[in-house]
Structure formats: structure tokens, C-alpha cells
Lab assay of single mutants.
Amino acid sequence: MSIQHFRVALIPFFAAFCLPVFAHPETLVKVKDAEDQLGARVGYIELDLNSGKILESFRPEERFPMMSTFKVLLCGAVLSRVDAGQEQLGRRIHYSQNDLVEYSPVTEKHLTDGMTVRELCSAAITMSDNTAANLLLTTIGGPKELTAFLHNMGDHVTRLDRWEPELNEAIPNDERDTTMPAAMATTLRKLLTGELLTLASRQQLIDWMEADKVAGPLLRSALPAGWFIADKSGAGERGSRGIIAALGPDGKPSRIVVIYTTGSQATMDERNRQIAEIGASLIKHW
């Protein structure tokens, strides 16, 4: 067993022997301040990774656009098919120029040779490549099948209805392509620590998230040296922004954090800054 596999296998073990965790309302004060600064709703939840206990939450059962955070769930569904012998990570998928959609920095470079399922998941999570996500959605049967996968996990809230990039439209009061912070946090925890996926697939999923290259201005910008984070960000229309993450000190994750916002007129930089400040408060009061 590799060191990384050992780390993920012992996530519940280490967490069980940690000192009790206590909620700190100071972080919620910052979440509410972010709402004021952005002029928009902000949803927040913080779960203990081992027990699933909610440590703090704000608007945990209000719907927010998922945006690209759905790509972690998508690759979880792909990995479940791999575990069941219905898919192979090494299978190569070929596609054409007509398949390319807006923001496809990886797939646009491989029109000639195609990409493997493993490479597509890596591109979808680490670079948020939209064509990679659409190609992977095709392998599982489309958005409705991802929703069905989530329902089978016990998540009857999260739903995907459309493809990239239309799913980022974020129309107010439109339930399409949305989740709730509580539902997303619980589902992410199941994917990373539950028995739904094999140990190898859980490790692969967290490795992809740990290698995320496009979430630097968010929670990662607030992390002290030595902290662990595996995350996936999302951005959408109407001032929408979000991030889902597993993080913790001492090089291992111990909490799940989900943050979503929508309806702001603020710039992307300002949305990023507010999420980073929430992260800084979380870490300060850990």
C-alpha cells in the first residue's frame, strides 16, 4: 500500500482519535458579512469528516447552483462504474471539434489522439474542462443518470439537468442544476469515506481534487503551510461562485467545507476574496 493510499485508508482512524471539535460562531459572522459585502445569498456548511456531524452552517438547506462543483460527483459516478466493471479508466475516447464547448483548455489539445477516461476526469476536476465533463456525462448516460446515481446514494436534493455550459445559467428560483450545502457536503463525505467506492477509487477521487489547479484564489489562499486540501470550485452566471473541499491540518483532511453564493453584482475577484476570507476565519478558529 502506498503512503497516499495509507493516508486515505486511515482518515477515519486518525479522526477518531482527534480531540473533540467545537464550532466557532466567528466564522458564521464572516459568512454573514460576506453576504453584506456581496449583496447576495451565501450558503455555508462545515462537517466533521469522521462523524458527519454538522459543526457550523448557514442557509444549509437553500438551493444554490452547483456550477462546476458537480464534476466531482460526476467522476465519482464514473469511478463507481469502474468498480462495477462497467468502465475502464484506460479506455480512450475520441471526439471532434464539434464536441468542444466553451472553456476546454485540455480537451482542445487532444482532438487528434483523444483522451482516456482517467485523463478526462483529471481534466474535468483539476482544470474544470467543460468538454471533458460533457464527454464523461455521455459515458454514464447524461445528466439524468448522474441525478439517479445521487438518488441511489441517498441524495434526493442534488440534481443535474443540463450539460456544460448551460448548467451554469443560475436563474433565480430555478431548481435545475442545483444542490443544497448540506446535501453536497453529505454526498461528498460519502464519496470520500464511505463504502460506495473502493479504496482505490476513493484515493483516485481525492487525488484529482488535491491536484486542483484553478481554485488557488479561494480556500487555498488562506491555508497555512502543512495543511491538506482537496477541492473543486465552480463559477456561473449572475454572480455565482462555489467551492467544495476536504481539508485539515497535519497533512490530512478532517472536515468537509461547502460554500456557495449566487445573485451578486460583485466582480469575480471580490467573490473570490470573500470566500478566501471565510476560509481564513475557519482556519483561525479551527
Score class of each variant (00 low, 15 high):
219 L>W: 09
273 R>K: 15
255 R>A: 08
280 A>E: 13
33 D>N: 02
195 E>G: 10
96 S>Y: 06
114 G>E: 03
52 G>L: 07
238 R>P: 07
151 H>C: 11
178 T>Y: 11
31 V>A: 03
230 A>L: 07
189 R>K: 05
230 A>S: 09
51 S>T: 06
130 N>I: 01
51 S>G: 03
72 V>H: 11
221 S>P: 08
171 I>L: 15
112 T>G: 14
120 L>F: 03
225 A>R: 11
83 D>L: 04
200 A>T: 06
206 I>P: 02
51 S>A: 09
63 R>Q: 14
264 S>I: 04
180 M>H: 08
50 N>Y: 06
141 G>L: 14
170 A>P: 04
101 V>E: 07
25 P>T: 09
196 L>F: 10
210 E>P: 01
192 L>C: 09
136 L>D: 00
190 K>P: 08
272 N>R: 14
222 A>I: 04
31 V>T: 07
245 A>D: 00
48 D>Y: 02
179 T>I: 03
147 T>A: 05
189 R>V: 05
160 L>M: 11
238 R>G: 05
75 C>H: 00
25 P>V: 11
132 A>N: 00
249 P>C: 04
110 H>W: 13
189 R>Q: 15
43 G>F: 01
144 K>W: 03
217 P>T: 14
184 M>P: 00
91 R>Y: 15
173 N>H: 15
99 D>P: 05
286 W>C: 03
268 M>W: 14
226 G>D: 11
57 S>R: 07
139 T>S: 09
244 I>F: 08
209 M>S: 07
36 D>E: 08
101 V>W: 03
200 A>D: 05
268 M>V: 11
81 R>A: 09
157 V>A: 06
80 S>W: 15
155 D>R: 01
73 L>P: 09
145 E>Y: 12
109 K>I: 04
125 I>W: 00
277 E>A: 06
199 L>N: 02
135 L>V: 07
44 Y>S: 01
134 N>C: 05
122 S>A: 13
232 K>L: 00
104 S>T: 14
68 S>I: 01
158 T>H: 02
107 T>A: 05
70 F>H: 06
144 K>V: 03
197 L>Y: 11
198 T>S: 07
123 A>Q: 02
69 T>V: 09
193 T>R: 12
247 L>G: 01
188 L>P: 00
236 G>I: 06
122 S>L: 09
114 G>S: 04
219 L>Y: 11
179 T>S: 02
279 G>I: 06
58 F>M: 14
267 T>Y: 03
50 N>L: 08
191 L>E: 05
92 R>A: 06
134 N>Q: 12
76 G>W: 13
265 Q>H: 05
235 A>C: 15
199 L>F: 14
224 P>T: 04
56 E>H: 08
214 V>D: 10
258 V>G: 03
49 L>C: 12
209 M>A: 10
90 G>H: 15
269 D>S: 09
214 V>F: 14
278 I>M: 14
210 E>L: 14
116 T>I: 09
244 I>W: 00
281 S>N: 05
235 A>I: 15
68 S>N: 00
91 R>P: 01
176 R>H: 10
143 P>Q: 14
213 K>R: 04
127 M>D: 14
36 D>N: 10
141 G>R: 10
132 A>D: 00
241 R>S: 13
220 R>N: 09
225 A>V: 08
49 L>R: 08
178 T>K: 04
248 G>S: 08
211 A>I: 09
87 E>F: 11
184 M>Q: 02
37 Q>V: 04
65 P>M: 11
188 L>F: 03
168 N>P: 13
183 A>N: 15
52 G>S: 09
168 N>H: 13
217 P>K: 15
89 L>C: 08
93 I>Q: 15
198 T>A: 04
100 L>R: 13
149 F>T: 09
163 W>C: 03
163 W>V: 08
24 H>M: 08
249 P>W: 08
282 L>R: 01
83 D>K: 03
213 K>Y: 13
85 G>Q: 06
146 L>I: 14
188 L>I: 15
230 A>Q: 03
51 S>Q: 03
69 T>S: 13
114 G>A: 07
187 T>D: 14
156 H>Q: 11
78 V>N: 15
104 S>Q: 12
212 D>K: 08
223 L>E: 02
164 E>V: 00
161 D>F: 04
114 G>K: 03
78 V>F: 10
172 P>E: 12
78 V>K: 12
208 W>D: 05
250 D>T: 02
66 M>W: 01
118 R>V: 07
267 T>E: 09
277 E>Y: 13
280 A>M: 13
193 T>C: 07
219 L>Q: 10
174 D>Q: 15
123 A>F: 06
185 A>W: 00
48 D>G: 03
201 S>L: 14
112 T>A: 14
195 E>R: 10
